[in-house]
Amino acid sequence: MKHADTPTRPSEATSQIPDVEVTLSVNGDAYRMRFDSRVTLLDALRDHLGLTGAKKGCDQGACGACTVLVDGKRIVSCLALAAQYDGHEITTVEGLTDNGEPHPLQKAFARHDAFQCGYCTPGQIMSAVSLEAEGCAGTDADICEFMSGNICRCGAYPNIRAAIRDVVSEGNDASV
C-alpha cells in the first residue's frame, strides 16, 4: 500500500514527452511559453494565459464553445495543439473589444437576447465574426449552415440568427 507522501515515478511514456517552447500571439500580445507538447490551444489560453472566454464544452470539437480565430479563420481550439500555432495570430472573444467598446456582434447578441445560460456565447460570437468576414451570412439558411458547428443547448438559435442578421444588414464591420 502506498502512502500519500511516497513519491511515485512517472511512467516511461510520460517522462519522454518533450516540452515545447512557443510564442503565442494572442489578442495582439506575444507570450513566450513552455509547456508539454500535448497541451491544446484551449488549455494554453485558459490555464496558462487566464483567458477563459473560450469554453471547454465537449472537448471533442463537436460543440463549438471553444471557437477562436487563428489568422482570421475560426477553429475549435480543443482539438488544436498549441505548439501548432507558434507565430500565428490568435483572437479570443476577449480580444474583440476596441478600447473597452464591445464588438458590434457582442452588442447585437445582447440586444437580441441571443443567449440564455451564456456558456456557448463566446464561441457563437467568434464563429459569427468569422462567418460575416467570410461573406457567408447572406440568408438565414446560410447562417444556419455556417453556424452549425456551434451548439446552443438552450435553443437560442432564432435570436442568434437575428443578431447576426442585424449586424450584416446594418453593414457593421464585424471583422477583427
Rank of each mutant, 00 (worst) to 15 (best):
Tyr31His: 14
Val20Leu: 09
Gly72Tyr: 13
Lys73Asp: 15
Leu69Ser: 10
Glu12Ala: 15
Gln84Ser: 10
Val176His: 12
Glu134Ala: 12
Met147Gly: 01
Gly100Val: 15
Val22Ala: 03
Gln16Pro: 04
Gly118Phe: 08
Lys2Leu: 09
Ile143Met: 06
Glu21Cys: 13
Cys58Val: 05
Ala163Lys: 01
Asn27Trp: 10
Val26Arg: 02
Asn27Phe: 07
Ser127Asn: 14
Thr6Met: 07
Asp5Lys: 14
Glu145Tyr: 12
Arg34Pro: 00
Ser148Gln: 08
Ile125Asn: 04
Asp71Met: 15
Tyr85Glu: 01
Ser169Tyr: 08
Asp59Lys: 05
Glu132Tyr: 13
Cys63Leu: 05
Asp142Gly: 01
Asp36Trp: 00
Ser15Tyr: 09
Cys63Trp: 01
Thr121Gln: 06
Gln84Asp: 10
Ser148Gly: 04
His112Ile: 05
His88Pro: 02
Gly64Asp: 03
Ala128Leu: 06
Phe109Val: 03
Ala163Gln: 01
Gln106His: 11
Gly138Phe: 11
Ala83Phe: 00
Ala82Leu: 03
Cys63Arg: 00
Gln60Leu: 10
Gly28His: 11
Gly138Val: 09
Met126Phe: 03
Leu79Thr: 10
Thr6Gln: 12
Leu41Tyr: 03
Ser169Pro: 03
Leu79Ile: 14
Thr52Lys: 12
Val70Ser: 12
Cys154Thr: 04
Phe115Asn: 01
His3Ala: 14
Gly171His: 13
Leu41Phe: 03
Glu101Leu: 14
Asp140Glu: 10
Asn159Tyr: 03
Gly53Leu: 09
Glu12Met: 14
Ala156Met: 04
Lys2Tyr: 11
Lys107Thr: 12
Pro104Val: 14
Leu105Phe: 07
Arg165Ser: 04
Arg9Ala: 15
Val176Thr: 11
Ala62Asp: 07
Glu94Cys: 07
Tyr119Met: 03
Gly95Arg: 08
Thr14Cys: 13
Tyr31Met: 08
Thr40Ile: 04
Cys144Tyr: 12
Leu41Asn: 02
His48Arg: 15
Asp166Leu: 07
Thr121Arg: 02
His48Asp: 12
Ser11Pro: 05
Gly100Ala: 12
Asp71Pro: 06
Gly95His: 08
Phe109Leu: 05
Thr139Met: 08
Val39Pro: 00
Ile75Tyr: 05
Arg161Ala: 01
Val20Ala: 04
Asp47Tyr: 05
Gly95Leu: 12
Thr139Arg: 08
Ala110Ser: 13
Asp86Asn: 12
Ile17Gly: 04
Ala80Cys: 09
Leu105Ile: 12
Val129Gly: 00
Ile164Phe: 00
Ala30Asp: 10
Val168Asn: 04
Gly61Gln: 03
Gln84Leu: 11
Gly87Val: 05
Thr97Val: 14
Leu96Arg: 06
Val39Tyr: 01
Glu145Ile: 11
Ala82Arg: 02
Thr67His: 08
Ala141Phe: 04
Lys55Ile: 05
Gln116Thr: 03
Thr121Ala: 09
Asp166Cys: 06
Thr92Met: 07
